[in-house]
Design a protein around this nucleic acid. Sequence first.
RNA 1: GCCCGCGUGGUGGAAUGGUAGACACAGGGGACUUAAAAUCCCUAGGCGAUAAGCCGUGCCGGUUCGAAUCCGGCCGCGGGUACCA
Length: 852
Amino acid sequence: MTRYDPATTEPKWQKAWDEAQTFRATMEGDRPKYYVLEMFPYPSGRIHIGHVRNYTMGDVIARYKKATGHNVLHPMGFDAFGMPAENAAMASGGHPKTWTYDNIDTMVAQMKPLGFGIDWSRMFATCDPEYYGQQQALFLDFLEAGLVTRREAEVNWDPVDMTVLANEQVIDGKGWRSGAEVERRALTQWFFKISAYSEELLDALDQLDDWPARVKLMQANWIGKSRGLQFSFPVIDAPEGFGEIEVFTTRPDTLMGASFVAISPDHPLAKHLEAAKPAVAAFNAECRKGGTTAEAIETAEKLGLDTGIRVRHPLDPDWELPVWIANFVLMEYGTGALFGCPAHDQRDLDFVRKYDLPVISTYVPIDGEITLPEDGGDPYVPPKTEQVHYTKLVAGDAYQTGEEAIDAAIALAEQRGIGEGVTKFRLRDWGLSRQRYWGCPIPVVHCDACGVVPEKKENLPVRLPDDVSFDIPGNPLDRHPTWRDTTCPACGKPAKRETDTMDTFVDSSWYFARFTAPHAETPTDMEAAQYWMNVDQYIGGIEHAILHLLYSRFFARGMIKTGHLPEKAAEPFDALFTQGMVTHAIYVTRDEKDRPVYHFPEDVEIHESGARLGATGEEVEIIPSAKMSKSKKNVIDPVNIIEQFGADTARWFVLSDSPPERDVEWTASGAEAANKFLARIHRMATEISEERPHGSDERLLKELHKTIDDVTKGIESFGFNAAIAKIYAFAGTLQKAPASGTKHDGLKTLAQLMAPMTPHLAEEVWQMLGGDGLIANAPWPEADESLLTEDTVTLPIQVNGKRRSEISVAKDLPKSEIEALALADDAVQRALNGGAPKKLIVVPGRIVNVVI
RNA sequence: GCCCGCGUGGUGGAAUGGUAGACACAGGGGACUUAAAAUCCCUAGGCGAUAAGCCGUGCCGGUUCGAAUCCGGCCGCGGGUACCA
């Protein structure tokens, strides 16, 4: 008996697929198209087991769809621009380009042995000039179509290194290299006008039936549509040009509980006051310390400064309120100013308690007592749909819901001409400027005479220069005179190139469209886009639920507007699946200064008494389980598993144990078990590979068709682990079954069911059993409906909801007879103890419940 | 802080309103073998005695004939938070 040997078998079948061009996608034939895409990887160095999991899932879908008669497109590429390449260049003196392309070569060489059914002829990297040149063309078309604008926005500024920092490079409010306290500084930057699409991007979520509900909810909350009242507070003794302060509120019903007006440190009035008042200037400078992230701003200590300016309450001219500058007021949202109502908002209450301002409740619960916030209680914040008792009413009835009171307040304000109801969105425009080298150059030129001038399309791509260095902080493009200095495309006079490059999210916002015609001389080829779009199934991590997916949805709309995609591609991803991460324990020792030193799992030996370093025997601390990360060294390189057990084992294991949307802990023992099972399947094939015997096995045939049905449904619903459990169960039954024609056919069909997951083994078994051609080209088995039903069913019998017994009855037995049988049951008799049941619930085919 | 998830045996998990723990890993016992490997069989949530029974899906409460599943409140963990990708 020959043992299954993946080392020879897997390359053999990969070569066979290659030679037959099995996965080359063309627009020929009349089969329906199917486009399956996994979020493309960043070329970080080597692939890890999480990549294997992600691309195996996509491959299962791709191979399954091919078997069900589809013309499948399954491409692969690399999201190749970004910071890590520059960091590597800074750390080790290489060039981002060399580093990136070397990594891509390594990762492709690691992925090919996994046997993915990918059309490798379509591969590209976003750092290929061929790709980013087309992206520059897209940018120019977007600019012309009015989808791009330029204005000031804040960045993290490292005052020592004199550079812009990414959020990731700000650690505890300090620059990662200099250690200097970071401050926020405004720069003129390019923006995509995504906020103009707020309403549309929100509304269209409803049509995405095959997206996870939580992703749609996160996007909806991110876009953040809210209706409220915009109105002004008249300023008393106003500085010139600041006669009133305009605010936006979603709770105009609480206007009679206002206790202060707060403006952002970036509000025009705050900036105006800086000039005359050193205290304001100092306060605003204090507020601008720290990074730009929402987390940093929201969790910072709430600070306020009384400007001394006072305003009048719009509903009561005798009521004066103080105007404060507060660091929690964002200039980007609403009007950059608000009124505080501490009785019904925790943040406002914290603020007034800190600065000793009044608290005024405007409503109380209808039922029940609360300690009013005036008397030291918590703020009262019921849902807007709940009816409350208004004690200080703006409009409407004293007893009404928050929603009703808000509508009434807006109506009153509009009637009196105080303000108007407006709809605001939280979504901000997409700042795409990055002050970095390794990205797509923004194809514009700054000319003293003509201003900002778009580069001519015939001059694209604007290529990144190769001769740059990273020995000093900052963007090397800024100090590269021969690249930076150019001539104005409009007037021909000397001018300077834009040295900012694009956010890498731009690169990943249209790559899916480029895969449909990766070498077209325009960004897309309309015929190919018309044929292949949309992506039928998109697969990727939940961490992309908001930004990447939202930007892609915007970009698709922009590409339609500029004639680069057909109308139908406005929502480019028909179905979305978000998979979980692969996690692993972290192994740590301590150095002489008690600093953590991380170790790769393969360097650690696990003993009963604990873990030790293989090389030195030093004791190792085990930190339970965390997301795989290169810096913590808790990454599993799948190459080890592939070398030891083969690609099919790696594929089978990553699919078998965990539901794909959930995080999975990597364990080596699981891979061994997966390998044993695959060897078992192969052994079965060697045992029954001779001629197909006569004779059928009805019981086995029913099992087989049930398995076909279960596995098909499992794959369709991404229930790979459950599908695999069914395969395990059927394989056990099959192995024990006596020889028959059914057994022979059953193993062949089992190979087909496994083919999307373990394609090499499946080809091997298929060939051994005399299958026709490649299993990769064989049509998917269909379950015979007539074999799926059973004549008798087992009904559990509950007494008061607890299982006490079970009966086996004919499937179509009338309810009355089931009732009689259930009541006659010993356990039920015992429970009834001579009495009669209060109620008898019979759910045909499912359960009986006797209520006593 | 805010938004979104998740929490089930020693472990990965199954069951999405109807028999909690399918399938597998690790464990225990056995067969085969001179021995080992490989393979095969049995066992397995907890308490109880192997019975009856009781308890049990992070915690507390609710809806229901019936809740891991639906609702409310908490705790813990994870993802995102607009310059990580």
